[in-house]
Design a protein around this nucleic acid. Structure first.
Lengths: 239, 239
DNA sequence: TTTCTACTCCCCAAAAATGGCGGGGGAGGA
DNA sequence: TCCTCCCCCGCCATTTTTGGGGAGTAGAAA
């Protein structure tokens, strides 16, 4: 069967995509190949800002946002703690809120079978690529074992594009931190007080302050905590 | 050619792996199939703790740790900021320390061509899967375009196993943060003062303190900054 | 039902961090 | 050469954060 070839082409197309529309088109083709009801790429962002592509109904999409469902959706919660793709059946739907959420989803046209792939990028980026369908368990099982690996690659390539688009939108201005500044904020991030850090770096507490201040101004941070958070999410330090 | 089939088998074998030795064996098979000099899977952990599989010489492995090279290695630094796999040539080797690091690496048997795939897991986990070889640029280019996608999958599967093994070693002691706690530390991470956060959450500053304290104790953090850094690197909050 | 967790509010005093001022020496690039 | 960046040190006063107490609600789980 030519499915393999077609999927290879999909990945190729994804690589050559330059706009959101093109990406949607490719996604639509993919849906045709996989023969599933719904495809969703969903960039989850602490703030609740979301960005992506979905074939769910607008009503459901809107309701999801309005109700802040990303806070209780077992798919999101589960995927957030895992690395491997997740079959919805393996999640915990026992709590009351999860059940009412599920019912709500069904009523808005979400199919009974789902497979979600968590994807993580730099700076704590987190996204989900989900395939959704209505069918019996055995059929679904067969679908997963046939396409599971390909879906991982698709998820990877879609996310790559999403990150590219996002990057275009926010150009960053970063000066580099000096080694001492990095030492300083790294130790602070590890929970040491300024006194301890100064001692551990064998410098006066005042000198330490100079480093922290200068790191803070380089990072455009309001306070030390902000500087640490910024440095961490920009990948300038690692803890 | 049967390379496709063989790689499929490698993925299968990876899934069935249950010990580190088995994993090493599969990696060795993979190295045979790809015909490259070195393969490395490298779990990067700010503290310098490292865990993985490598075919580099013990001398280099040790030297790398001793010198804290993970702090200056452009491969690590570069991959940490990116999502897509990285050809070493596309990195910035211009700084002095990078050059001396590179020379040191060469002297310890590291090949001139490299391709590294960043992988991220839950709780801020970060790892690299690297293929290293000595050859000219054109040959390498051909290698990458032939195996690039497969390598992504391999990296994914290896990391999946590494996470499984790790999980067995450290039974987790993590309670989840409550929504309010997450709100609180997220806003703090964004640089707001306690007064501002309290106002923005419409609660008293005292209540806010309760959240911060309880988040801190749940995270086992020494102070607020530490709590924020911990929450960030565990992926509990995003800024 | 009882128990547990999440959420909300209050006071006080000590410790820590910040904001502002000043100073010096050295290494490297334009 | 000059200029910039990195490295190091001191004192002042103010603001912010922290570490101890305390108490009451509601809703979910057991």
């Amino acid at each position: 069967m030519g499915t393999e070839v077609e999927l290879g082409q999909i990945l190729q197309d994804l690589e050559n995509t330059n706009t959101l529309e093109e990406l949607s088109n490719v996604a639509e083709q993919l849906r045709g190949i996989l023969q599933v009801e719904h495809l969703t790429y969903h960039w989850v962002d602490g703030a609740g800002d979301q960005y992506g592509y979905t074939t769910y109904s607008d009503a459901w999409d809107e309701r999801y946002r309005d109700k802040n469902y990303h806070r209780i959706d077992p798919v999101i919660l589960g995927c957030f703690q895992r690395f491997h793709p997740v079959d919805w059946k393996s999640l915990d739907w026992s709590s009351r809120i999860a059940k009412s959420f599920l019912e709500d989803a069904r009523n808005h046209g979400v199919g009974n079978q789902g497979y979600s792939i968590p994807i993580r990028g730099p700076n704590g980026q987190f996204a989900l690529f989900t395939v959704n369908h209505s069918c019996d368990d055995r059929t679904w099982q067969r679908f997963i074992s046939t396409f599971g690996r390909d879906l991982i690659l698709v998820a990877h390539f879609i996310n790559r594009k999403a990150l590219e688009f996002e990057e275009d939108r926010q150009p960053d201005s970063k000066r580099n931190l000096s080694p001492r500044e990095i030492d300083a904020i790294t130790l602070l991030a590890l929970g040491y007080s300024r006194a301890q850090v100064a001692h551990s770096l064998s410098i006066s507490e005042h000198t330490l302050r100079v480093y922290i201040e200068s790191a803070r101004s380089k990072l455009g941070a309001h306070n030390t905590t902000h500087a640490i958070a910024t440095a961490l999410s920009r990948g300038l330090i690692v803890v």
